[in-house]
Nucleic acid binder design. Structure first.
Lengths: 211, 211
DNA sequence: TTTTGTGAAGTTTTTCACAGCG
DNA sequence: CGCTGTGAAAAACTTCACAAAA
C-alpha cells in the first residue's frame, strides 16, 4: 500500500512520544491524547495508525508498548545503513555528536572534507578523507546514503562525485546549495535558514496563520 | 491574499538561486530553467510567482535582478527581528556561526543555557544567561522569536518560560522534544533525525518514490 | 515564436462524522 | 458508553493546458 510522506514524518514523532510515555509508565493512550501532545488532530492520528492495521482497542485506546513496537516494525529496516557524510563543519560535527545518530541501525563509514587538518584524522571514530576520494571510498564501502553538509557552492560537485560512485541511493541535504540528481536518487532537504524565513514571513502577517 | 506555506518555502529557494544567477551575470531566466535547477515543475514556479503580481515578460522570462528584488520585498519585513536562542550546544553554536543568521534583519538579543561555563559569557558576541532568566530577559528585550535547541526533556519547560515573558510570538524548534503552545504562538519544527528516518523508510521501499 | 499567467482539473492530504466493536 | 477505524467530504496543493502578451 502507498503510504504518504507526511504520515511517515508523524510516525517518527509518535514513536518518540510513545517511548517517553512508556518510560513514564503509561499503559494506554488515546488518539486524542497523542494529538494534544504533538499538536495533531485526533482523527489524523487514527488515520495514520490505521494504515498499518487495527492496532488500537475500541473504547480503550492504544496499548503504549504494543503500539510503540508496532511503529518500530514499520519504520525500521532489517539492514544496517552505511552512511557517508560530506562537509565536517559545525553542522556536520553537531550531527555526528547527536545521540539519534549513534544508533546501531546506522553505520558511518566515511567522512569527507577539503580541510587538510581534518583529512586523515578520525572524527567521532570515523575516518575523514579528502572529498576527491568520494567515488572510490563510497564504492568500496557501499554507502548508499550521503549526508551533505557542505557549503552551498560545493553541493553540486559533491553530489556528482557521490553519484559517480555508483552506490548512492539517497541524500539528506543540509546544505543551502541546490543541486540536480537523476530521478532514481531520493533527496530529502532540511534547510534551517529557510524555515526561519518562513516563520518570520508568517509572523509579519498577523492574519494568516497556517495549519 | 492567502499564500500557502509551501510557496513561501520555495520562494526562499528562488531567492537564493536568483542571487547566484545574478552574481554569475545572468540577465533573464525562465520558469523552465528555475524549475530544472531547483527540482520543481515550471508550472509550479510560475504559479508561485504569479501570486505576487505579473513580474515576468511573456516570450522572454523573468528579469533576474528585478525578480530577485521583488522576492526580497515579499519575504522581508520592515522590522528587525529580535531573537533569543535557548540551548547553546553543538547545533545552537553551529547556527550562530552560520552566515545566513548573521543578517542585519536578525538581532540575537540573548542566549540561554544551564551550563555554568556558558552562563555569563559572550558567545559570538551575544550574552548568555541562565535559562531561569528567560522570562525577564525576553520581556526586557522584547524578543518575539525563540530558537529552541535544547535537549528533548527541556523543551516544554523552556517554552513555558518563554511564553510567560509575554512577548513570544514564534518558535523555531530544532529540539526533538515535543511541546504544547497556545494557538497564537507560531511553531516551525525542524527535525533532522526524523528526516533521516523518513529518507531511510522510502529507501527500503524500492517501489514507493514520493513527489 | 516563445514563455508567461491562470482558470480548471487532478492529486494529495486532512478532517468529518459515524458505524462498529470492546 | 467510549474510542477506534474508515468511507466520504473538504481543503490544500500541484499540474495541466491554453489564451494572451512580448
Amino acid at each position: 500500500m502507498k503510504i504518504a510522506e507526511p504520515t511517515i514524518e508523524r510516525l517518527v514523532q509518535y514513536h518518540r512520544l510513545l517511548e517517553r510515555l512508556r518510560e513514564e509508565g503509561h499503559r494506554v493512550v488515546s488518539s486524542q491524547q497523542i494529538g494534544e501532545l504533538l499538536g495533531f488532530k485526533a482523527s489524523q492520528v487514527r488515520k495514520d495508525l490505521s494504515y498499518f492495521g487495527e492496532i488500537g482497542k475500541r473504547g480503550v485506546g492504544y496499548h503504549v508498548e504494543r503500539l510503540c513496537d508496532h511503529i518500530v516494525q514499520i519504520l525500521s529496516s532489517p539492514k544496517i545503513w552505511r552512511i557517508a557524510m560530506a562537509g565536517i563543519g559545525n553542522i556536520g560535527t553537531a550531527l555526528l555528536s547527536n545521540q539519534s545518530f549513534r544508533s546501531p541501525k546506522l553505520r558511518f563509514e566515511a567522512l569527507f572534507d577539503i580541510d587538510t587538518r581534518k583529512i586523515g584524522s578520525e572524527i567521532f571514530g570515523v575516518h575523514c578523507w579528502d572529498a576527491s576520494e568520494i567515488p572510490v571510498v563510497m564504492a568500496e564501502r557501499k554507502t548508499e546514503v550521503l549526508i551533505l553538509a557542505v557549503p552551498a557552492r560545493a553541493a553540486q560537485s559533491c553530489v556528482d562525485l557521490a553519484i559517480s560512485s555508483g552506490v548512492l541511493r539517497g541524500v539528506l541535504a543540509l546544505t543551502q546549495g541546490s543541486f540536480v540528481v537523476p530521478d532514481e536518487i531520493l533527496v530529502v532537504r532540511v534547510d534551517i535558514p529557510a524555515e526561519l524565513e518562513k516563520l518570520l514571513f508568517f509572523l509579519k502577517q498577523p492574519e494568516v496563520i497556517p495549519g
